[in-house]
Design a protein around this nucleic acid. Sequence first.
DNA 1: TCTTGAACCTCTAGTCACTAGAGATTGTAA
DNA 2: TTACAATCTCTAGTGACTAGAGGTTCAAGA
Lengths: 138, 138
Amino acid sequence: MFSIGELSRRTKVKVPTIRYYEEMGLLAEAERTSGNQRRYDKAGLERLSFIRHARDLGFSIEAILSLIELQDHPDRSCETATDIAVSQLSDVREKIKRLKLLEKELTRISKGCDGLGVSEDCYVLASLSDHEHCENEH
Amino acid sequence: MFSIGELSRRTKVKVPTIRYYEEMGLLAEAERTSGNQRRYDKAGLERLSFIRHARDLGFSIEAILSLIELQDHPDRSCETATDIAVSQLSDVREKIKRLKLLEKELTRISKGCDGLGVSEDCYVLASLSDHEHCENEH
DNA sequence: TCTTGAACCTCTAGTCACTAGAGATTGTAA
DNA sequence: TTACAATCTCTAGTGACTAGAGGTTCAAGA
Ligand SMILES: [Zn+2]
Ligand SMILES: [Zn+2]
Ligand SMILES: [Zn+2]
Ligand SMILES: [Zn+2]
């Protein structure tokens, strides 16, 4: 059994974040000492590692809630899990697509001005004023 | 002179968002009718278009505030503007880098399970439980 | 056993860029 | 004149935390 601080050190999840996950229902309510402090065991550590890893991969709290529910029922079909993963993947691909468009425009905009001129003649400001300068929709 | 709804239609910025921008100091306080409704002119339209375009390119409100300040002083050096654009570009590149790593892992994870099995044996859940399955840091 | 102080507790509020809703007032066209 | 869409202000909610206040508990050293 270890404290919330120890759990934090082992998982690299900050203490207030652990408490937040408990409040959100991702972590079961921890056991408490007589003085009301949380104590965790190996199961708590593993669950938090799962949550942390899923968050690192960009899954939402809501998605993780579904994944955990599934994990708690080993006999259920795992269809939901793949659905969630596939949808997360397509979210990520969408974001990449959009960011690449932005990258293109921002590269052009940044290159257009060396910062040595005056605001009035600045290509950065002109480009922001008028989307017509842009090569793509974004 | 046109109403906030008309401005909204022309810029595709929602009415409450326009009011929010005003509150944040991005838009000057609009003129009002005797009945206290906002009225805008061409200058207001152009400024809102600028803001909208900058937001579409991912600039923060704070950054846009600096850019607007610069735009209001045509004789100042535009160095800040390039700085902001360059920093925005590198933010975007960072994000793309990170998302590409996620894409790799999520592709592997998604492919690893057809959703026909049972939670206990699910590759998605196993992968989330253990970062050791991953090929990259993320 | 006592004392110190780091770690813990709960609760509230702040972050960013909006979005939603309540309840009241105004503008405009038939 | 009347109807009703549009506007007004104000408060609160979103997601996933983070920060801080003010108080309590744990564990180690004297
Ligand atoms: Zn410039
Ligand atoms: Zn553009
Ligand atoms: Zn599966
Ligand atoms: Zn991993």
